[in-house]
Design a binder for these strands. Structure first.
Ligand code: SF4
Ligand code: SF4
Lengths: 133, 133
DNA sequence: TCTATTATAGATATAATAACTCTTTTATAG
DNA sequence: CTATAAAAGAGTTATTATATCTATAATAGA
């Protein structure tokens, strides 16, 4: 019952994009070194973010990654969902009773968490946390 | 990023105690049959609940499990914590900066979820959901 | 005390998932 | 054409979840 390391890497990577320069193309090597993981692994995570539209990539020489226009409104939840997939904290419900309050409680709890994660966007970090990473 | 099956079993077991008879001693076999898992496995989960003080157990003949006095105020969060341990959705933070907003966001999101889970107690299910399980 | 019953503990096996690596392919600037 | 960098795919290892089996401890009742 915790977020994967991949999600961690994704969050930190996105934040790093913000605190450096959202416009500039950035290769995967410097990022990988910062977090001490292999470039190919991080690349795989970044590809997930690309597919979710949370970063832009450019192949070939002088290529790299950068934030897309509109990056300011990307939320924590967006990033988490991009990496973890559509998570539902509560699964394995056999007799699928829609009235069941157990499910309702769990779903509502998850919603509360997601609400919070949705409200926090990269814009919040543009000024406030340049020293974080 | 989801709750374990064990947590599921624990929640359903607790609910089952409520909808049947909170006072009566109940062996592990009937419960295990209901959820189609082995008695020893469920027993292990129940033992965790016992250690957390969420159920009472009695060894020996005519023994079994039952809810303790004050069971009405046991919350979903109590049960989850008893089985999952002290979970923190966000770990693997290396340079432990207490000012870090990333951590703050994640912790606050988790808090929101836990608040909700804390407010839902077994008492809510005493009348409302006798047909759930 | 003896026996049947029931929880507890420990060791172990299996399965599933996460975490990571290596290799190959595709794309592009110069 | 070539150097560079991302994307894709296959495969490996590590970790954790899930579950079972066996043995031990406790207790009520005969
Ligand atoms: S009690 Fe609710 S959550 Fe559990 S199996 Fe039934 S419908 Fe699903
Ligand atoms: S940026 Fe924040 S969450 Fe990430 S390692 Fe640093 S202190 Fe921890």
């Amino acid at each position: 019952m915790k977020f994967s390391k991949a999600t961690n890497y994704a969050l930190h990577t996105m934040l790093y994009f913000v605190v450096t320069d959202p416009k500039q193309q950035l290769g995967v090597q410097p990022l990988a070194e910062k977090m001490e993981i292999s470039p190919t692994y991080l690349s795989k995570i970044l590809t997930q973010l690309v597919k979710a539209g949370l970063v832009e990539s450019a192949s070939g020489a002088k290529g790299g990654y950068r934030l897309p226009r509109g990056w300011e409104s990307i939320s924590f939840l967006d990033i988490i969902h991009a990496v973890e997939g559509p998570v539902s904290l509560f699964d394995g419900c056999l007799n699928d009773n829609p009235e069941c309050m157990v499910k309702q409680v769990m779903v509502s709890a998850e919603d509360k968490m997601e609400e919070e994660l949705k409200q926090r966007t990269l814009a919040d970090f543009a000024e406030s946390a340049p020293a974080a990473l």
